[in-house]
Design a protein around this nucleic acid. Sequence first.
DNA 1: ACTGTAGGACAACGACCGTTGACCACCGTG
DNA 2: CACGGTGGTCAACGGTCGTTGTCCTACAGT
Lengths: 183, 183
Amino acid sequence: MARRSAEDTKAAILLAARERFASDGYERATIRAVATEAGIDPAMVMRYFGSKEKLFAAAAAIDLRIPEVVDEADPGPGLVRHFVERWEQDDTLRALLRAAVSHEAAAERMRALFAEQLGPVAARLAPEGAGPVRAGLVATQMVGLALSRYVLALPPVVGLSHDAIAAWLGPTISRYLTAPDPD
Amino acid sequence: MARRSAEDTKAAILLAARERFASDGYERATIRAVATEAGIDPAMVMRYFGSKEKLFAAAAAIDLRIPEVVDEADPGPGLVRHFVERWEQDDTLRALLRAAVSHEAAAERMRALFAEQLGPVAARLAPEGAGPVRAGLVATQMVGLALSRYVLALPPVVGLSHDAIAAWLGPTISRYLTAPDPD
DNA sequence: ACTGTAGGACAACGACCGTTGACCACCGTG
DNA sequence: CACGGTGGTCAACGGTCGTTGTCCTACAGT
């Protein structure tokens, strides 16, 4: 059997870690299970990542890659589509979401993620000074979709097509971002 | 010190259990912590509830108490207000939500909750046959609000008043329930 | 006063977890 | 061929958890 390089092993561990964190959450995802899935000894995980906490931090590093250019008048559908594709692309966001619910460090990372990556978009599209609130409203809808579809697996929500999701949630997101303040 | 009745003790355990499950999630909420908070020995919890699983089942029993009568043309704001008040009334819903993320039995209970209690309302207000999908859409927005506000504690969402929440999310809920199907 | 019973405490078991330290095997290089 | 470092294993420690069995104690009814 050919020896693996350290980088290959690290990558295998990260992949396995995202999978376990995504489907088991922070506490149920054990170092031992991650190691088994990566085909190595638990001690290697410690060698390469130092602790479970640091392994999670490495596994949950993510860039939302929100597109710079969107339809300024009706940004919702495009953003919704982008989010859905981002969620389904790999396990990272699911891992972060599941962990954020019971792990304070993960929750903090999630808050930072929305503040730093969704914030600027909202600041640009929203009325003067309303950026943070509008970003928060968008977050409620997008996080709720993710939770319902990928974690709770509510059957009607799982059954929605990407088109249906964009058609239903798009107007909501557009309104949260661009509508004037209500009375 | 006067002895407590079994019923009093059971109630104290349930109260403590909801608190621990709500703020720690299923796995981090230990029987030992619940017992300490209820002022008794962990063994008592087992005596009265049999197992951690059954304790959770007892602590997570809930009735959403969705009002029978709502404004049929614009049900959103009223429903949103009712949900927010229901969430803030006690720890039961927060406990269920947090546990549902990492505990399959709790997730199943959450699915049943929405199907049985939100489903009928959606079936009544939505176009023929569209009930389940509309209930699912409503769930994405309401669950997302709860997660963002009570679990992740996103600052802009935490800062919203009940009035602001109803004003922003009300139209969304109304549209999900009563709008005709999009193209 | 006696006693049965309901309400409760204590200590321990077995399992599992994160983490550690000592030890091994293969490899390219001198 | 020796050899050092890289990639890897193994066994164990200390801690915590759910759970169990045994024992204790206060009180109500006779």
